[in-house]
Design a protein around this nucleic acid. Structure first.
Lengths: 179, 179
DNA sequence: GAAGATTGAGTGTTCAATCTTT
DNA sequence: AAAGATTGAACACTCAATCTTC
């Protein structure tokens, strides 16, 4: 009974995820507890971050996909990129990028032009209104992120960022298509 | 020019995310680089993990939502939970849970019964076929997770899990609705 | 009235087929 | 033939309205 309360080596109390992993370990003693725990935690925390940002950005009447697109364009030189570049960075399909661009265009935030150099490609350009919208969104997103990570020790945030960078590099080295 | 190649305090090379954050820092010198970097890395790594698991599980003709549901039921005593419990654990809306259960039921993996104790509730029970399916899926998911984290130093995985647990606890303490 | 589940409308995604350009 | 973008069908989600039961 007591062991259930503090079985973490770090002295922290067990949480919901520890309990779930413990269930599967009892079913299968060979289970890699470290990997399973990390996998669940990563998914949960990412989900919570996504929800928190979405909630904070909702007051501006904006969806996450719109933020992703306008900021990707805002970073481009001349605020212009091809549709293909945008879909690869956002890791979505070509059908999805067509839909996103149509919606952004109908709001007047981007313009679509055929690339004169290669007429198969579409050049997407941020309009002045889209540029202003992007500046509004990056500011709101920055403060939403601040709120999400507030109260966390600085040191922990830095260590997390560092370890996730290592993980990212390792995964991308194994599977170049993940780039 | 040279500073772009190695500006990480850890001695690692800069990557795509470092470059993006550096762009925004130049636009706004007050930017909290630690937070922004972590936010982007967390989202990216979680996305890659999701894609990797989905790809590995696709050979069984299964979607992630199905794995999530069957494993949640498999853990329950008597392989039975109410629809409400399932939607809270999966963090989805009530409409979504109804649809998921209908699809699982049509495949013969779960059964739906009115709770005799409270006729507003629906009791969801894993069928024998659903139980077998769940056992197949947990095994496949475990090896997919192993593959995703292979090549990573054990020590780093443990530290990541520990730090993410701290983050999760902090977030949930601030916003109990995130539980 | 409140809680739990269902329904339907609206949104946004993937996938496969198609069209244009290279 | 291959590459880039578009189209439409299928899928799965959220949100708001509704129904039943407490």
């Amino acid at each position: 009974v007591w062991a259930v309360v503090v079985n973490s080596p770090t002295g922290q109390q067990t949480d919901r995820i520890d309990e779930i992993v413990e269930f599967w370990r009892q079913e299968n003693p060979d289970l890699d507890v470290t990997t399973k725990t990390l996998s669940m935690r990563l998914r949960t925390v990412a989900h919570l971050q996504e929800q928190a940002l979405r909630r904070d950005l909702a007051v501006l009447g904006v969806e996450m996909w719109e933020v992703e697109m306008l900021l990707a364009l805002r970073r481009a030189s001349g605020a212009q990129r091809t549709a293909g570049e945008l879909l690869r960075e956002a890791r979505i399909t070509s059908g999805a990028i067509t839909n996103r661009l149509s919606r952004l265009e109908s709001h007047g935030w981007v313009r679509r032009d055929v690339d004169p150099g290669d007429r198969r490609q579409v050049l997407v350009t941020l309009t002045p209104a889209g540029w202003a919208r992007a500046d509004e969104l990056i500011a709101a997103k920055n403060s939403a992120e601040q709120r999400f990570y507030a109260k966390m020790p600085r040191k922990t945030l830095e260590r997390l960022g560092h370890d996730l960078r290592t993980l990212l590099a390792t995964v991308e080295a194994r599977d170049p298509s993940a780039r």
